[in-house]
C-alpha cells in the first residue's frame, strides 16, 4: 500500500477509484434531484436527513474520497508538468481533447463550486433568507423546493451553476473513460465503446443537472 501511494502509477489508480466513486455519487445525486419533477423533493430531502449519524458517515467518506482525488490530482499534474519542459514551436494535437488536457482546471473549478454549493444548499450560509432551514413547507419539512426556486430565479446564481456543470461535464467526458483505462478495464473492443459511453454518460449528466436551474429560471418549474 505504501508503494502504491508513493508511486505515481499507484496514485493514478486512486484517482480512478475515487473518481468513479464520485461519479457514482453524482449519478445518485441527479436521480435524487429528479424527485423535483414528481413534487416529492422535500420528502426525499427529509428522508435523507432521517438518520443524522449515517448522513455524517457518508459525508466523511465522500470528503475523504474527494480529498484524495484532489490531492493526488494536483500532485500528478505537477509531476506531469515537470516531465515536459517547454512545448513545440507549433503544437499539433492528434488525439487528446480540450477536456483531457484541462482536467486540472475543470477539476479546480468543480472544487471551487463545491465550496459554494455546500455553503449554499447544504450549510445554507449563503443567502440564508431563502434557505430551507428557515422556511418550512406545509408539512413542516424544510422547504428545499422553495429554496431552489427562490435561488434559481436569479440569473447570477443560475449562471454559476451552469458554468460549474459545464466544468463537471468536461471533466467527466474525459474522466469516465479514462478511469476504465486506468483500472485496466479495457481491451481493444471495449475501448471505443467506453470512450463513447463515457462521454454519453457525461452529457446525460449535463442535461440532468442543468435542467432544474434552467427550468426554474425560465419559469417552467415554479412555486
Amino acid at each position: 500500500m505504501k508503494s502504491l501511494i508513493k508511486n505515481a502509477a499507484g496514485r493514478k489508480i486512486f484517482m480512478a477509484v475515487t473518481g468513479q466513486l464520485m461519479v457514482l455519487f453524482i449519478i445518485i445525486h441527479v436521480i435524487g434531484n429528479s424527485t423535483i419533477y414528481f413534487g416529492v423533493l422535500n420528502s426525499y430531502a427529509d428522508h435523507l436527513h432521517a438518520v443524522p449519524f449515517l448522513l455524517w458517515v457518508f459525508r466523511l467518506v465522500m470528503l475523504t474520497v474527494f480529498l484524495i482525488h484532489v490531492l493526488f490530482g494536483i500532485l500528478l499534474t505537477l509531476d506531469n508538468c515537470s516531465a515536459r519542459p517547454g512545448s513545440y514551436a507549433v503544437r499539433a494535437y492528434r488525439q487528446s481533447t480540450f477536456a483531457s488536457r484541462n482536467m486540472i482546471w475543470t477539476g479546480l473549478l468543480i472544487c471551487l463550486f463545491l465550496f459554494y454549493h455546500l455553503l449554499h444548499f447544504t450549510f445554507q450560509i449563503i443567502r440564508p433568507e431563502v434557505s430551507a432551514g428557515v422556511n418550512s413547507d406545509a408539512m413542516g419539512r424544510p422547504d428545499v423546493f422553495n429554496m431552489l426556486v427562490m435561488n434559481f430565479q436569479h440569473f447570477s446564481v443560475t449562471l454559476i451553476y451552469i458554468l460549474a456543470i459545464v466544468a463537471l461535464v468536461l471533466h467527466l467526458s474525459h474522466g469516465i473513460q479514462s478511469s476504465f483505462q486506468t483500472l485496466g478495464l479495457n481491451n481493444e473492443r471495449t475501448l471505443p465503446v467506453i470512450t463513447k459511453g463515457g462521454s454519453i454518460v457525461a452529457y446525460v449528466l449535463f442535461f440532468g443537472y442543468i435542467a432544474i436551474p434552467v427550468m426554474i429560471f425560465i419559469g417552467i418549474l415554479h412555486g
Binding site: N7, N80, Q95
Partner: peptide
C-alpha cells in the same frame, strides 16, 4: 514502473497522443 518514475517520465492521463504518433 518504478524505473519510469525514477527516470523523470510523467504519468498517463490517457490523452492517447502516444498511440496517434
Amino acid at each position: 514502473i518504478s524505473a519510469m518514475s525514477k527516470e523523470g517520465f510523467g504519468n498517463c492521463s490517457n490523452h492517447y497522443e502516444c498511440h496517434a504518433v
